[in-house]
């Protein structure tokens, strides 16, 4: 069971109180002329994922709290969260560990 802390409102809960939103920091190929975006870029944006065995930056929704999306860094082998940080912030370089207690 994953235990999370929302960095926006501070709500704590397990994975059923939050909703997973996949890999974070994937930039949409921005263009004022969408037809100029190449198929390869569009494919990478829509479908290609890092899917790492180890640290993963990912998005979560505070579904039963403040309703905001936020980011988290989690180890996909140990399931341990290394950091929770707000949308728009960069992933912490040295993971600051804040253990979520049940």
């Amino acid at each position: 069971m994953l235990l999370l802390i929302c960095p926006v409102c501070g709500a704590e809960g397990d994975e059923t109180d939050f909703q997973y939103g996949g890999e974070a920091h994937i930039a949409r190929p921005a263009s004022s002329t969408p037809e100029a975006v190449s198929e390869a870029d569009q494919y990478a944006y829509l479908h290609v994922r890092a899917n790492p065995k180890g640290l993963h930056h990912e998005q979560w929704l505070c579904a039963r709290g403040c309703g905001k999306w936020f980011n988290a860094t989690r180890d996909t082998v140990t399931m341990e969260f290394k950091a929770f940080y707000k949308m728009g912030e960069k992933p912490p370089r040295t993971p600051r560990t804040r253990s979520a207690k049940p």
Binding site: M1, E15, Q19, E58, R74, T76, V77, M79
Partner: peptide
């Protein structure tokens, strides 16, 4: 389970 996982264990929910 919803989230990326390499642990070969699942989640109780």
């Amino acid at each position: 389970d919803a989230y990326n996982n390499y642990s070969q264990r699942g989640s109780p929910p």
